[in-house]
Design a binder for these strands. Structure first.
Lengths: 196, 196
DNA sequence: TTATTTAAAGCTATCCGTTAGTGTTACGGT
DNA sequence: ACCGTAACACTAACGGATAGCTTTAAATAA
């Protein structure tokens, strides 16, 4: 039961996963998401359909492969911020970085594809909501903030809203400039139940 | 082209639709959403599967039959409010009524079923987002409010968040008491670009 | 080394939601 | 009475996803 980190097995598994993801994204961008079937992806990646689904939970998940650290980055923006740095600006910085990342030219075709597919949009929405839950937990867990759990959940949602609103806005950074003062005001209005 | 409201045809169509919805909801509550297939519902309602799908766009839509006026009620809360009544309290009243409606004992089993099914939760989330778009339009269309389109979209999202957060909270009304002051602060912070 | 265990991948067959194609019935307008 | 068409039915299939079982090959024990 030695803890071999880089056995051949795990490398091969990771390679298979990567090959599937790469193939899928390539085919999706070439022919369109709806025009490519799971069987096409599996055949082109030279794996069985069951293997594909042992690596990815659904067809949509193939597209959001890279997006995995979104949740981690947001929660770390809360937990790893400088001592006594206020919450909202820290979150704003991270959201700005994330929005820039997904509106960059390199990511544009992918997000264009997502926006064009109802199934992908729906999937994106639902993972964002799960991210909001994680963010809410991180906020609620910080005793220095001293807000109720409801306030934490609420602000977490608002921050996720900021991300998706900015992503869809014609000028994402200007949208954030407008939304975050609103979030800040909401956060202040939530008050600190006990701060003596 | 007379506007016959109660032709036999339309009555029969409505009856068929109602029978399908009733049958579906009954079977779902009896045996569980996942344990009942579309073919089961169609057989029990004595219609063809294709007929079922000509009345409802998806299996999930069968569950949200009643919930159709959600969007209309919210947008009307904006457009039909008393002259010069501020926006946020009007929205708060309506959200409170909607939350009470869906947390009432009669609706409890349905919402329990929804919360238990990932597919239904996802569907619910996505229709709420579409409702937010409609609400944003209603807000942006009111010249008396004088907020930017981004601010309108943002507040609309926040209001929808309030609904779903309250619905899931242990004490929904207390949650609204906490969330709406935050929304109000956000709305005030958005300011009125031109009000002279 | 050889043997054993176990994780990864494969194959087959199928379920289930959903849709296309094609009729058939019966209501409504003329 | 006639015709157009809306509602519904039937068959067949498509595409995503899964269950059950076998095969391959890496890790570990002997």
């Amino acid at each position: 039961m030695s803890v071999q980190q880089s056995g051949r097995r795990e490398r091969k598994k990771a390679a298979t996963r990567q090959k599937i993801a790469d193939t899928a994204l390539r085919l999706f961008l070439e022919r369109g998401y709806d025009a490519v079937g799971i069987r096409d992806v599996a055949a082109e990646a030279d794996v069985a359909v069951t293997t594909l689904f042992s690596h990815f939970a659904s067809k949509e998940a193939l597209v959001f492969e890279q997006d995995e650290d979104f949740e981690r980055r947001l929660t770390q923006a809360v937990t790893d911020r400088a001592p006594q740095e206020p919450l909202v600006p820290a979150l704003r910085r991270e959201i700005l970085a994330l929005v820039r990342h997904c509106t960059a030219d390199s990511a544009a075709p992918i997000w264009h594809m997502i926006d064009a597919s109802p199934a992908l949009r729906k999937y994106d929405d639902s993972i964002r909501l799960r991210h909001a839950d994680a963010l809410a937990q991180a906020i609620a867990a910080d005793p220095a903030l001293g807000r109720s759990e409801t306030a934490a959940r609420t602000i977490a949602r608002f921050v996720i809203d900021a991300y998706s609103l900015a992503r869809e806005a014609p000028d994402p950074e200007a949208a954030l400039d407008e939304i975050f003062p609103m979030i800040d005001a909401a956060w202040e209005a939530a008050g600190a139940p006990r701060h003596t």
